[in-house]
C-alpha cells in the first residue's frame, strides 16, 4: 500500500490511452511514487560514463544518475553546470539494465522535458547544477516521468511534494565528501515530523494551520503528513556520503536509501568502494557486516573532502527559499 497524499488526479502528466484496445493509465502518482518505492533500501550512484555505470550495476546499485561532471568536479570547475550530454545518457541507457536517472537545473522546464523525451527513468531537479530560476521550481505534475527533489527541511520537502515531486532526498552539501550536512538535514526533517505528529495527536488544528503558513504549503498536506508521521513519498539521503559507515549511519536515521555522488568515482578505489557502500546500505543494522564493508575500502584512498564552513559555494542554499 502506497500513501498518495497530495495526489492530483487531473495532472497533465497523467496519460489515459488504449493499448491494443485495452484501457491503460500512465504517469499516475501510484506509478511515479511506486517507482521510487522500488528503489528503497538501495544505492543510487552518480556516474559520468558507461564504464562507471557498469561498475555501479555490477556492485548492486539500484540506479545510476548521469552527470556531465561529478559534483566535486562541478565545484572545482565553476562556471555554469547544465544537464549532461544526451548522447552519453543514451549510451548508458543502452548499456545497463538498471534505471537511469539524470539531473536538470532547478526551474529549467525544458531541460526536464528533454530528459523526459530521452526516456530517463527519473529526473533529478538538482541544486548541483546552476539554478535556472531562483523563484520557481518545475511544476512536476505536468510530467509523466517521476521527478526527485532535494530538501533541507520538512517545509522544503512538502513544497516540492505539492509541486509534484515523487521522491525527496536530503540536500547535504554535494561534492564535499563531508556527510555532516546530510546528517543535519535528515535529523531536522525527523524532528519536524515528530513535532507535527504530536500537534496532530493533540488535536490542535490551529497550530497545524500556523505551521502550514510558516512552511508555505497547504493545510491538507501538513495534516496528512502529520497523521502519517513520515513524508508521503520515499526519502533518500544524499550529499557528501563517502564511506560505508556514512551510508549505514544515514540508514539508521530512517532514510529509505542512499544517493552517492562524488564519494565513489572520486575515490581511488571506486570498484571496492561501490561494492562496500551497497553492502553497508543493505546490512546497515548488522554491525559485523558494516565493519566488513568498511574494511573493503582504504581511508587513504577516500576523497580528501572539504570542511563545509570554508566553502564559497553552498549548493544546498540553491532554491531553498522558493
Amino acid at each position: 500500500m502506497l500513501p498518495l497524499y497530495g495526489e492530483r488526479t487531473n495532472a497533465k502528466g497523467i496519460i489515459s490511452e488504449k493499448l491494443n484496445s485495452v484501457d491503460t493509465l500512465r504517469g499516475s502518482s501510484t506509478l511515479k511514487r511506486g517507482f521510487a518505492h522500488m528503489q528503497k533500501n538501495g544505492v543510487v550512484m552518480d556516474v559520468t560514463n558507461v564504464e562507471q555505470a557498469l561498475i555501479a550495476q555490477e556492485a548492486g546499485a539500484v540506479s545510476v544518475m548521469v552527470l556531465d561532471k561529478l559534483p566535486s568536479e562541478v565545484r572545482k570547475a565553476g562556471g555554469v553546470a547544465r544537464t549532461a550530454s544526451i548522447r552519453i545518457i543514451e549510451e548508458i541507457m543502452d548499456s545497463v539494465t538498471i534505471p537511469v536517472m539524470a539531473k536538470c537545473r532547478i526551474g529549467h522546464v525544458n531541460e526536464a522535458l528533454v530528459l523526459q523525451e530521452t526516456d530517463v527513468d527519473m529526473i533529478d531537479e538538482s541544486e548541483v547544477l546552476t539554478p535556472a530560476d531562483e523563484l520557481h521550481h518545475i511544476w512536476k505534475w505536468d510530467f509523466t516521468t517521476p521527478v526527485v527533489n532535494g530538501a533541507r527541511s520538512l517545509a522544503e520537502a512538502l513544497r516540492r511534494i505539492e509541486e509534484g515531486a515523487s521522491m525527496i532526498r536530503t540536500k547535504g552539501e554535494p561534492g564535499t565528501g563531508n556527510v555532516a550536512e546530510a546528517i543535519t538535514h535528515i535529523k531536522k526533517v525527523n524532528d519536524e515530523l515528530r513535532t507535527i505528529k504530536s500537534i496532530y495527536d493533540s488535536g490542535d488544528n490551529q497550530d497545524l494551520v500556523r505551521i502550514a503558513r510558516e512552511f508555505k504549503v497547504s493545510y491538507d498536506i501538513v495534516e496528512q503528513t502529520a497523521k502519517l508521521g513520515r513524508l508521503p513519498v520515499v526519502n533518500f539521503a544524499a550529499g557528501g556520503i563517502a564511506t560505508p559507515a556514512d551510508a549505514a549511519y544515514l540508514m539508521s536515521l530512517g532514510c529509505d536509501g542512499i544517493f552517492v555522488g562524488s564519494g565513489i568515482f572520486n575515490a581511488d578505489d571506486a570498484q571496492e568502494r561501490a561494492n562496500a557502500i551497497v553492502l553497508a546500505t543493505t546490512f546497515w543494522n548488522e554491525s559485523d557486516k558494516v565493519k566488513e564493508a568498511q574494511k573493503m575500502i582504504d581511508e587513504r584512498q577516500s576523497m580528501l573532502g572539504l570542511d563545509v564552513k570554508t566553502l564559497d559555494l553552498r549548493m544546498q542554499d540553491r532554491g531553498g527559499s522558493a
Partner: peptide, 9 residues
C-alpha cells in the same frame, strides 16, 4: 519499456 511507459490497467 522504461519508466515513462509504466502503466496501470
Amino acid at each position: 519499456g522504461r519508466q515513462r511507459e509504466s502503466f496501470e490497467t
